[in-house]
């Protein structure tokens, strides 16, 4: 089942229910997909809201955290933007741990990163392990 949830704030986030078989753990049964370029901005920049309209803090608070609160695994697609600064990535993903939204283990289990650039995933995983 695919549905686009556009009524939960400024950003559209697609939610997909995936049948993972009888052994599937319920918390990972529903995957919310977030394509940053399409659903947030092609030009994400800055750490804090004061740094610009598409900051890491705003992405975390208005897109990522609501998606995580819906439960299940959240898949974040990183390709398609005009690039990322580490300040954005650290605030958006590392901030989940720092602000106690997720534990390190939960972050590893519930956030799936999709990108053709291995270094982005490696860097973000590093921020979520601190």
């Amino acid at each position: 089942m695919d549905r686009t949830d556009q009524g939960r704030g400024a950003f559209a986030v697609s939610t997909t229910t995936q049948d993972r078989g009888t052994l599937a753990v319920s918390t990972t049964a529903v995957a919310t997909r977030i394509n940053i370029a399409r659903e947030y901005s092609r030009f994400p920049a800055g750490r804090y809201r004061t740094d610009g309209p598409y900051s890491g803090e705003r992405f975390r608070d208005e897109v990522l955290v609501p998606a995580l609160r819906r439960g299940g695994q959240v898949e974040v697609e990183l390709d398609g933007t005009a690039g990322y600064g580490s300040s954005f990535l650290e605030e958006a993903f590392g901030g989940l741990i720092r602000k106690h939204v997720l534990s390190v283990t939960e972050a590893a289990d519930r956030i799936r990163l999709v990108t053709s650039d291995d270094s982005l995933e490696s860097e973000i995983r590093g921020y979520m392990q601190r």
């Binding site: 990322y84 600064g85 580490s86 270094s119 860097e123």
Partner: peptide, 21 residues
């Protein structure tokens, strides 16, 4: 094996004092 060193390069340039008010 470029993932970590490339991430470190990006981080060295853009983690601080970058895209900031």
């Amino acid at each position: 094996a470029y993932a970590k060193p490339l991430g470190a390069f990006r981080r060295a340039i853009t983690i601080e004092n970058f895209d900031t008010a």
